[in-house]
Simulated assay, not measured.
Amino acid sequence: MTVTNVVTGAVDWAMDRTIGPGYSRLGFEARKRFWAADPPSDALKGRVALVTGANSGLGKAAAVGLARLGAVVHLVVRDVTKGERAKAEILDAVPGAELHVGRCDLSDLTAVREFGDSFAGQLDVLVHNAGVLPPERAETEDGHEVALATAVLGPHLLTGLLSPALKASLDGRVVFVSSGGMYSQSLRIDDPEYREGEFAGAKAYSRVKRMQVVLAELWAEELRVDGVVVHSMHPGWADTPGVSTSLPRFHRVTKPLLRTPEQGADTIVWLAASAEAGRENGKFWHDRRVRPTHFLPWQHESEEDRLALWTFCETATR
Results as ranks from 00 to 15, higher is better:
Val6Tyr: 08
Val11Phe: 13
Val11Cys: 11
Ala14Phe: 14
Asp16Val: 03
Arg17Leu: 15
Ile19Ala: 15
Arg33Asp: 00
Ala37Ser: 14
Asp38Leu: 10
Asp38Ile: 02
Ala43Gly: 07
Leu44Met: 14
Ala49Asn: 07
Ala62Gln: 05
Val73Gly: 03
Leu75Trp: 10
Arg78Glu: 12
Asp79Trp: 06
Glu89Gln: 14
Leu91Val: 08
Val94His: 11
Pro95Met: 09
Leu99Val: 04
His100Val: 13
Gly102Leu: 11
Ala111Arg: 03
Val127His: 08
Leu133Asp: 12
Glu136Ser: 15
Glu141Arg: 14
Glu141Pro: 00
Leu153Asp: 05
Leu153Arg: 04
Leu158Ile: 10
Gly160Phe: 12
Leu161Thr: 08
Leu161Lys: 14
Ser169Thr: 11
Val177Cys: 08
Ser179Val: 01
Ser184Phe: 04
Gln185Asp: 03
Ser186Pro: 04
Leu187Tyr: 04
Ile189Gln: 06
Glu193Phe: 03
Glu193Pro: 01
Tyr194Asn: 13
Arg195Gly: 07
Gly197Tyr: 04
Ala200Val: 14
Ser206Met: 07
Val208His: 01
Lys209Glu: 07
Arg210Ile: 09
Val213Glu: 02
Val214Arg: 12
Val225Thr: 13
Val225Ile: 07
Val229Asp: 01
Gly236Pro: 02
Trp237Gly: 08
Thr240Tyr: 04
Gly242Val: 05
Ser244Ile: 13
Thr245Gln: 14
Leu247Glu: 13
His251Gln: 12
Lys255Asn: 08
Pro261Asp: 05
Ala273His: 01
Glu280Ser: 12
Lys283Gly: 00
Trp285Met: 01
Pro292Asn: 03
Pro292Met: 05
Pro292Glu: 09
Thr293Val: 15
His294Val: 14
Phe295Lys: 09
Trp298Cys: 07
Glu301Val: 10
Ala308Asn: 06
Thr311Ser: 15
Phe312Cys: 04
Thr315Leu: 06
